[in-house]
Simulated scan of single mutants.
Amino acid sequence: MAGIDSLLDELADNAEAAVRPAAQAAAQVLYDAVMRNVASIGRVTGNLQNSIYQVYSRDDSAEGRATYHVSWNHRKAPHGWLVENGHLQKYKVYLGRDGKWYTDKKAPLPAPRHVGARPFVRPAQAQFPAALDAAVAELLKRINGGTP
């Protein structure tokens, strides 16, 4: 029985050590999907693409559970929400000499126009099954000592 106990303890230790890498493997699948979605929108300044991140969350993780966040940095790309969800444009916009876009609040449009959403995070949710497969593969690889 001591041999079985030792084997079970080793399996538990391997599983515990494999949780974070498995969660990161799943997050990587989602991150790659978000990056592809952003690339398909087209690049104006590149701020949105440069703001996409994945990060381990210490606050949302616990023993035996690892959480990663995949999103965009709202400070680097404050327009990300407008792109993801669409918005109502009330004012004219122009491209400044510095290459940045500006809103001219002194020049309202004759009628507000709806700018449709071009979601890049929400469609990545379709990759949840692939992300789960990646996590399971990484977990099994690490539990079995490197062999899937």
Rank of each mutant, 00 (worst) to 15 (best):
I4G: 08
Y91P: 03
E138F: 03
V44E: 15
A126N: 09
V34M: 10
S40A: 15
A2I: 09
D133S: 07
G146I: 00
L95A: 06
P110S: 09
S71N: 14
L48S: 08
P148N: 00
A27H: 05
P108H: 05
Y102M: 01
P112D: 09
L139T: 07
L140I: 00
L48M: 11
V115H: 10
D133M: 04
K100Y: 06
S57Q: 12
P110R: 07
Q28P: 00
V44W: 01
L139N: 04
H69S: 14
R75H: 10
H69F: 14
A77S: 08
L82P: 00
V115A: 09
G42H: 12
Q24P: 02
R113P: 01
A66Q: 12
N73K: 02
R43C: 03
D104T: 02
E138N: 04
N85W: 11
N50W: 00
W81R: 04
I52N: 04
L8H: 08
Q125R: 14
Y53N: 10
G146D: 04
S57Y: 08
R43M: 11
R142E: 02
Y91T: 05
R20S: 10
L30H: 12
P148Y: 06
A62K: 09
L82F: 14
R36E: 15
D13Q: 13
E138P: 00
E63L: 06
H74P: 00
R20V: 13
L7F: 12
R118V: 03
S51P: 04
N85S: 14
A107N: 14
P110N: 09
R43Y: 09
V121A: 12
R118G: 03
R75D: 13
A131D: 02
Y68S: 06
K141H: 08
R122K: 12
A130C: 01
V115C: 08
W101Q: 04
A134I: 00
A2R: 13
I143F: 06
N14W: 02
N14D: 10
P119Y: 03
Q49W: 11
N47P: 00
N14M: 02
S57E: 13
P112A: 07
M35L: 15
L95D: 02
V83A: 07
D13K: 15
K92F: 05
Y31H: 15
